[in-house]
Nucleic acid binder design. Sequence first.
DNA 1: GTCTATAAGTCGATAGAC
DNA 2: GTCTATCGACTTATAGAC
Lengths: 222, 222
Amino acid sequence: MPAHSGTRRTGPRSDVDVRTLVLDTAERLFAEHGHGAVSIRQLARDADVAPTAVAYHFDDRDGVLRAVLVRRGQEAMLRVHARLADVVGAPGTPTANDLVRALLDPYLELLARSPVGGLRWLKLMYVLATSDHPVWRQAVSSDAELPGLYRGAFARVLPDVPADAVPRLANLTVYSMLGVLARADQPGFGSPWTPGAGVDEEFVDLVVRFGSAGLLGALEAT
Amino acid sequence: MPAHSGTRRTGPRSDVDVRTLVLDTAERLFAEHGHGAVSIRQLARDADVAPTAVAYHFDDRDGVLRAVLVRRGQEAMLRVHARLADVVGAPGTPTANDLVRALLDPYLELLARSPVGGLRWLKLMYVLATSDHPVWRQAVSSDAELPGLYRGAFARVLPDVPADAVPRLANLTVYSMLGVLARADQPGFGSPWTPGAGVDEEFVDLVVRFGSAGLLGALEAT
DNA sequence: GTCTATAAGTCGATAGAC
DNA sequence: GTCTATCGACTTATAGAC
């Protein structure tokens, strides 16, 4: 008998991890309605869990948001770090293409591993990135190494880049791609990844060429 | 005596337009907390208006959202149309730069006219653009001429562009710029526009060069 | 066009059983 | 670790006064 047949299941459960259940549900609801619009109770109802169980594991809604961010973000960020370090330490002459790929590939891998949840997670990232929500701000500022890695990798690929242009160019590059990825389920606009059909290599190449050509062209004199 | 000195003002008002008051407040709250997280009552409280007055003018929350979208969006969209038509009908050879400027300038003008509200409006656009919220979907699909204008302008600037690449490239271009604009108040990343300091022409040029070089480079063979 | 008053539901938080 | 039960505050929606 499936859950949600009128009333909620009762008593403790041991078949599935409550944490995972809540995180999956939160990822979906946060992406669909915005994290501020989802109550603990609604979350618990959809996850088929008692409201107090959510509070026990995550304290409050910000705690749930933090955990949702970290679950997939941790590994993706480690991959970005590693890839940027590759660009910095590459023996030959790394190209703008390599740099863009370093920033994009970890998220394509994330989508390949978790098509549905990964896309929801990316939509959530996309929205949080314009807010100054404390959870987001803390997540960003806690990564002390990233700015240096950015500067190093960008300087390697664009030798004449002014120091103050690096965050600007990084902003343009990362968020043009994030915008495209987060819209991957909207038909018509085109997307590097279609649910069920996997990665569209042709479109990924288009996005990468757009980003790398943009980086190179942005620094040319007007 | 200022408003909000403990209790709310009472009785009908005639000094300021209630619609404008509510729209300004909604623009701010929607941008800060997400449109789904703002209740009619909270909106009315912050606008110093009775909840039923909001419902009278806008029916429900989606009605408020629709009105907020239209208030600034109408004019910006007309400007985009006109500028794209200019590119299509230009006598000489329009450049990718002209195309990017056609998509960006109307929103820079909006920010110049209404620095604070304009930025909030852009943040709201940015968030709505990844949702499939009915209000957003209707607003987008109601503009039947835009896709044709896009195709015409892109084909004029990029003669060899495949038809199915136009929406993809437009997506990349528009949302790389929208992402930058929507983050205009976050220090560090750099922004084409700083509250109080006006438009940073140098950064705008950087953004435009990024977009136009990206468009041209995206179509080159790998 | 704007208000008060009210009915029925939902919210976060917490105390306490098992 | 998960549950039930319950608090006051908040919510939408509607009926009706002026």
